[in-house]
Structures are given as C-alpha cells and as structure tokens.
Design a protein around this nucleic acid. Structure first.
Lengths: 215, 215, 215, 215
DNA sequence: AATGAATGAGCTTTCATTCAT
DNA sequence: GATGAATGAAAGCTCATTCAT
C-alpha cells in the first residue's frame, strides 16, 4: 500500500522476467519460473499481457527508452558541442542498453513467433530511421557537411563499427558468461571514440622512435 | 557414385540443418524437421552426432574454418604488406563467416544446454586467443610497435569496432529479414578499413575552415 | 463430496500405476498409459510428482507403511507375549506387504535411475536399521538374551529365512502369474513360525525308531 | 584358432551380456552395449540368437545348470548321508546360483516379452516339479516319512524359508549395491541349516530358567 | 558369418495457455 | 483481478531390429 507502483503485479512480472533472463537465459524463462520469481500465480501473466511475447516486448521497449531518447536527441546536437562529446554520450548510453537487451534480441532467433512480433513492432513504432546505426550515420553525415568530420570517411561504416562493436561485446559477455569487455561503458565509449576520431594511420608526429600516446 | 561425399547422411543432415536455421529459426529446428528435410530417419542423426548440440557445433566449426585460418595467419602478417591490405582481408572473411554463424550463435542464448556445450568446445578448441577480437587487437598492437599504426589509439577498441560492426550487421540482417547492410562483404570491409585508418577528424586539407572536434 | 480424497488426481495416478504394474509390468508402465488409465492428462503426473521415479517411490512407501509400523513396534515386544505370537504377527504383515511391493522392487533392476532414487530414499528414510531382516534378527537376538529363544541358533539366519521366504514366494507368484504360495499370508505366517520354532530335527516323541540327522 | 571355444562369437556375447548385467543393470543392457563389450558388430547377435530375450534366456539356463543338477540329484539322497549334509549341499549351490540369476530374474518384471518367454520355457523345460522350493519340500517330506525330519513341521514352509532366504539376500545385495549378506554361500548355508534343524525354541539344556514361547 | 548404418515407433518430460473457483 | 490444477501437443532422444554389403 505504501509502494503502490512497484508492488503492482505487472511491474513484478517485468522485473522477475528481466532478472531471470540475465541469470538463467531465455531457455529457462518459463511462465512458471516467471510467476514463481514474481511471487504471483501463473495465470496472472495473462491478465496483464496478451502472451509471453508481449511481456518480453514490453521489457525491450522499456529498457531501450533511455537509448531511444538519446537517439532522438542526436540530430539536434549536430554542430553543437564537440563531435567527440556527442559520440561519447551516445555510445555510453548505447553500450549500457545493449548489455540489457542483447540477450533478449538474440534469443529472438530461437522463436519465430517472438521474432515476428518484434519485427512488426519495430516496423510500426519508428516513423523513419529507428535503427541506431542509421541515426548515428545520419548524424556523422550531417557533421561531415559542416566540416566537423573528415570528408573521405564513410559515415555508415563508422556508425556501424562504433554501435556494432558494443553490441558484439555485449553478446559475447553474455555468451561466455563473464565480463569480457572489461571496461565500463563510459571508458569503452571514450576509447572507441578516441580511436575512431584519430584513426589508425600513424601521424607524422609519430617519429618511429616513438613519441607515443597522448595528443 | 559421382558425388560420393555430398550424398552422405552426415552431410545431408548438416545442410538440412543450416537451411532450416535460416528459414525457420532455431525454435522450429526440431530433430524431426531436420530428419524430414534431410530425407533420412530421425535416429540417423544420432549415428553421426552425439546429440543436437553436436550437430550445431559441427556446423559452426565448419562454417568458421575459413575465418579461423585467416585469424591463425594474421600474426604472420605483422609488418608484411600494408596494414590496410591485412585488415581488409581479415574483415572480408570475417563478414562472410559472421553472416553464416551469427543466427546460430545468437540462438544459443535460448538453450543453456547448447550454450554450455559451445562454451566447453570454444574453451578447449583454441590454444590461447581464439576470440577474433583478441587476435585482431594483438595484430594492431604489434603493428603499433612497428610504427605502422598510430601510437595513441586503443588496439582493442579498434578491433572490437571493426569485428563487432560486422557481427551487428549480420545479426540485424537476419533479424529484420533483409539485407540491411546493403554492400558486399568485400565493399564493407574496404569502407570500414578506410574509415578506421584515416579517422573521423577532419584533415587540414579538408576545405572547411572550422576547427572542430578536438579536445 | 463424499469421497474428497480418493477422487484426487494424485490418488488416481497412484492407483492407476499400481494396477498397471500388476497387469502389464514395468516395461509397459509408460507415463502415457498411466495417464490414460487414471483418466487424466499426461502432464498432470508432473504436477503431483517430480517424475516417474517419484511416483513409484510414493507407491512403495505408501504400501509399506503397515509393515514399517509393525517393524518399528517389534523392539517393544521383546519379552512380551510369546515369541510365536510376535513372529506370526510380523510375518503376516510382511507377507502382505511383500506381495504388493515385490514386483516394483524387482523392477528397479531394470532402471538405474529409479534404483538410484530408491537407494537414496531408503538410506535417508530409515533412522537406523530400516532393513526388515535386521529388525527381526535384532528382535531374535534380544529374545535369545532373555532365554526365550535357543542359544545355539543364528538370529540373522533365522530372520533371513522367515522374511526372505515370503519375498521369494511373492516374486514367484508374480513371475509365474499365479498364486503358487497357495495359502493366505496368515496361514503361511503360522506354518513358517511353527516350523522355525520347533526345528526340523525329529523329537524323541516322534515314534519313528530311527535316530537320524545328528552331527 | 587356439581357443576354439571361448573365442566364438556366441560365447563372447553371453559373457559380455553377463558382465554388463552385473555392472550396469538391465536398463543399460542395450544390444549396442553388448556388441561393443563383446567386440563384435551389433548385427552379430541376431545370427546366434533369435532376439535379445533368447540371449538372456540362454544365460539363465546356463548359469542355473549346477543348481539344476543338484536339484535333480536331491531325490536320490533321501535317506542317504545326513539331512544336514544334504541340505547344506543344496543350499550352498542354491545361494551361489541365486547370486548370479537374481538380477536377471527380477528384471523380467520390467519386460513382459521376456517374462512370457521365460514362463513358456519354464513350463515346457521341466517334466515335473522344476521349481526349487518344490524339490526341497518334496525331499523334506520324504525324509519326514523316514522319520529323519520332525513330524509336526511343514516341509513346504521349511523349504520356502531356506531357499527364499537366499534369494532375498541375493536380491538385496544387488539392490543396495553391496554385499549385505556378508558371509559366503558355504557359511550361510551352514548357519541356515543349523538354525532350521534345531529350531528357535529354547532347549531344557539352555541355562536360562524361563519356560517361554507359547504352548 | 559378419558388419554397422539406417529405421521409426515410442519413450519421458516440458510448458504456454485455459478456466473453474 | 487472482489462482494454480489441468491440458495436450510437441520436444529430444533411445534402441531392438533389419538388411545391403
């Protein structure tokens, strides 16, 4: 009665589901297990969600909201602050979200029903380019036009690398059951952006006898 | 008698499995369906593979062999040819393999038994750094020591981006059911390497007068 | 509402299982057959029992409860009533129980999983001497110390014979599909005890002139 | 060629089967396991035996031959030597055989097809009273008529106890996975016979003053 | 005689979903 | 809204037996 929101069955089901997803994986995510973890009856799930797929979808949407907001705001940052700051902020959020939704997203391969649901939802939910890589690529292209990004790079390739790198790390973290991508989202975002910005090619300043690492 | 190899039951099972995996997903990948698709009895599967997990593993291993070989040869390329050539070659192979194995890899999230099997196999199959990102990162670090790669970038971040970008593209291609990553592996590898090499920061040669992005 | 207990699914499953066990044997005792016989769905079995082994174990335990109680009370009878009465009572109960559980017990040989389950349960269920022969042997030894049983006999041999004789009869009754041990448990208990008490050696009173059997 | 008998496939199959039966139980006694253990192909079994049941039956018959001979000779011992000697010899052989065939016999409960086979075989193989208990009971009755056994005991009860006791011990030895019936067949036979001969009732010679045990 | 890949019916078990209470 | 027993289809896997070689 004191926590009218958190104690709601619907909320309990979502929290329980998320918890089980991270601890046991989708294969063990049975409606029975969810109900037990949530402390409610099995049937209760069907009062709040059409079916199991709807429950998962609700979680994906909920856990992506931060990221979505960040993406929605990215076009407004074109020409603002520094490219470095903008990219770091977006990647940091992306890496956090990816860690949460990667296992769910990947699991979709195992269940065509869920996959179909999500495909439909993804298609109808976003007006235009709801796909993170697209948004970042569009941002980079816009900055390119402003001269704040090099002319000879491929925006989509850069976006794909930075976003995709985080996704890959998240997937393998879960796959191998440990934190392989050792660093925090924040640090990884910084390193990734710094590396992407300066490029791999050695600078003139790199006088082979080594001048090294800082600007 | 003209195709003594392809007509073997074992081969038929692997091909059927791969086909079903791409068309129906792991959820529909029942031993019964595999047998029907392969045109053999269900029990035959268990003559050639310990269980369903072993069958999937065999496919993953088989489809990754090109990639694996490429990775194994990468350390030998340190200091050879150009960094661009080496990276392009490795990424092209990676992108091709990823397209084949990403859905299988992701599906593992849905089945702890399969996951456990694969983790064991992955652990024992590779002597040391069997993880592609590690290999590429090690390569970049080596080139860095030779002065063929900029001193101030983070090898691991670069490797993670380039390899992970391809993985992400493969996953979403399959997820959304279409070729989102429009370009061919070859073209994507080239674009990715070019972008990564030169970096996002605008060059002095870049006509734009702006000072841009730096710290 | 008059028989609230017997109509319960759990009860129906146990009765159906017992019935099938006697009519068809363990080999035909499939979960499908049990469900059909009980008039419930196959899945219902798994609401009431962890698995098939647990169901069988429940039956064994239930059908042995009479016997178990009798055994538990036996130590208290030492020195009470007559040895004849005590043994007759225990054997009568034993013979009844054995007829019910012998086929189940024997069937365990055919299924290591069931066997392991039962061994565990048997080990943990009984405080100390849960093995009938031990209990009866201990009783006889106690009576021996009171002088109510001959000094020169081996209590364990006597117990093994009396208990084991019933078991053997039960097994072969079921094996040969007919009532070979013609007499009722009561009558058999009486005959066995009378024979065991007086011994095979001819008495002086036995009119026959022969001296016979001695060492 | 040097060991023309033991190297025969048929012999190897029987030995392998017996070995597996004692180590793994009937549940693990698959035709594949037998073939592997025997070092022959799976199909070979069906060249030498009609089916798996026939193989088991052959083993039962073979391993009981000692006991069978002993039983067949028992009627001829009536009035010969001492009752004690005759019983000890028969029981010692019985206890040895029972240890070998008890697990097979019991396993029959799990397979009606095998059971039916054996019932048929048992029925047709013995002219008259092929059932051990019957034979021993008949022997005791005969000795009773000669006055070498007490008049007031029930031969069938005595036979059932002595034979059945051994069977029970053999079954539980296998069931519990250890040698519970600690003593050797020889020693157990001696103790059983001594106890059965003298009876449980205390003798006058027994120092204890009590009169005890029933009318 | 011997082989062993192939068969396929049949097993135990799981689990999303329903519905009477 | 909440409950949880019941459902029953479908899964992965086993194994006695056959048969082309």
């Amino acid at each position: 009665m004191l926590e009218p929101v958190l104690n709601k069955t619907r909320e309990k089901l979502m929290l329980a589901t998320e918890h089980l997803l991270y601890t046991d994986g989708l294969a063990r995510l049975t409606t029975r297990a969810i109900a037990r973890e949530a402390g409610v009856a099995e049937g209760a799930l069907y009062h709040h969600f059409k079916d199991k797929a709807a429950l998962l979808l609700a979680i994906v949407r909920d856990r992506m909201s931060d990221f979505r907001e960040m993406l929605d705001g990215l076009p407004l940052q074109v020409g603002q602050r520094t490219v470095r700051e903008n990219l770091e902020q977006v990647l940091q959020t992306a890496y956090g979200s990816q860690h949460k939704i990667a296992p769910i997203l990947c699991s979709l391969f195992a269940d065509r029903k869920l996959l179909a649901s999500v495909q439909k939802t993804l298609a109808e939910c976003g007006a235009k380019p709801q796909y993170p890589v697209e948004v970042v690529a569009a941002y980079l292209a816009a900055e390119q036009r402003l001269g704040r990004v090099a002319q000879d790079i491929v925006p989509r390739a850069a976006a794909q690398s930075m976003i995709g790198g985080g996704f890959h790390a998240a997937v393998f973290d879960h796959l191998l059951g440990q934190e392989l991508s050792a660093a925090s989202p924040r640090r990884r975002a910084q390193e990734t952006v710094r590396t992407a910005l300066s490029g791999l090619e050695p600078r003139v300043s790199d006088t082979c006898p080594v001048r090294a690492t800082g600007a």
